[in-house]
Design a protein around this nucleic acid. Structure first.
Lengths: 212, 212
DNA sequence: CGTATCCGATACGGAAACGTATCGACCCGG
DNA sequence: CCGGGTCGATACGTTTCCGTATCGGATACG
């Protein structure tokens, strides 16, 4: 409510972000407070548990992701209209997809999203709360896929949501492996080795009707 | 050394496996001992820290995975020889790949491998110790890919190791997403939507020489 | 069957983190 | 400028977990 409170909340969340990245979800309340420059009193006045702060962070992150995806959609829609057949349509689509996807060098995001996945897998309540936000992003991503395909003159051979999940899975796998195996191919290369083929495999010319 | 000691080690590791799956790496020594039916004395007599047990589990798991991969290789090599062109060569290769990959419904493995990845990302020493074992599995997987391609009459357009990493990434992404988003397409479907296209995209007929 | 050794149980001290209850300072409105 | 309410700091007791040192019993072996 008050300005001061909002500021301490923000600082605690920022500190939580950093500490969670460094230490994982097992970070202690004291660590977070120390990082933020507060004492535990401030924490308990704003959050009940570390998990609560952790989930708050997810809300914040997913909100910004949603906004970014929304922008990407309008960008694509803005310059859409007439499909263009020539050129590396799929390559352009991949680039577009990358622009929506999380920044490839964002190690922090990968670490945290792994933590979120683990937490959700272990705590059904957490999973349910997360799923609400997930669905919103998922829907926005689907919209992006649809408009991007339209712009590229392509039609999906599977439901757009299925296509977007498949691409998201490939993206996540590439991101994970690029960190887990630093000697192997990097994130960019992995995507170049996979995404175009998946897109080509799951789409066809727009004129053809999807029926059957 | 003695039989009793080996048994308590085994039981502690099994308990550790279960507790790590349920609680994550932040599990306490006491939890593990309680689960195993021992007291902390037994633990300290066999391990120094929970991380040590955790890493020991990785050694054990990677060993069995290595053995399984080795079997798969000999299976494929055994019935190889003459490449067969007809039929769904790629589909068969995918099935073969799946037989090497981790069991799709093995939630425990996914949880633990995520924990391993996180731990390695945060602790360079842990990462280095893991990388030794990883490389062994990686090499076996590469051998599998090579022999499977040979058997299918296909030649990789990229280094086999690169191909295997790409497939591993897709596999990992599909596995993760199937757990993170239970409403979406499942593991099997995600792989069917992606792996064949990636394989086709990165391989060609064996007769053609790879040289540019 | 007896004995030396190994190994897991027990006991102890201490550190770290938790949650609460209370106090003092700051902030905002009148 | 001042008063009431909010908010974060402080202090306290409790719990949990840790690591070690020691003890008692099981085990392997002659």
């Amino acid at each position: 409510m008050t300005r001061r409170r909002q500021q301490t909340r923000d600082r605690l969340m920022q500190a939580g972000f950093e500490v969670f990245v460094e230490r994982g979800l097992s970070a202690s309340i004291e660590e977070i407070c120390e990082r933020a420059g507060y004492t535990r009193g401030a924490f308990y006045s704003n959050f009940r548990t570390t998990e609560e702060l952790f989930f708050g962070l997810y809300e914040r992150l997913s909100t910004t992701a949603l906004a970014r995806a929304g922008e990407a959609v309008s960008d694509v829609l803005g310059s859409a209209g007439r499909p263009r057949r020539g050129g590396d349509v799929v390559g352009a689509a991949v680039e577009a997809f990358l622009s929506v996807a999380m920044s490839p060098d964002d190690r922090s995001w990968w670490l945290l999203s792994s933590e979120y996945a683990l937490q959700a897998a272990r705590d059904p309540q957490f999973a349910q709360r997360m799923s609400v936000l997930r669905k919103r992003i998922q829907a926005e991503l689907d919209r992006f896929i649809v408009s991007a395909l339209d712009r590229a003159g392509l039609a999906a051979r599977v439901p757009p949501s299925t296509l977007s999940r498949a691409l998201a899975a490939v993206h996540a796998g590439a991101l994970a492996q690029s960190f887990e195996d630093p000697d192997g191919p990097g994130y960019q290369e992995l995507l170049r080795l996979t995404v175009p083929f998946v897109v080509r495999g799951l789409t066809g010319p727009a004129t053809r009707r999807t029926g059957a």
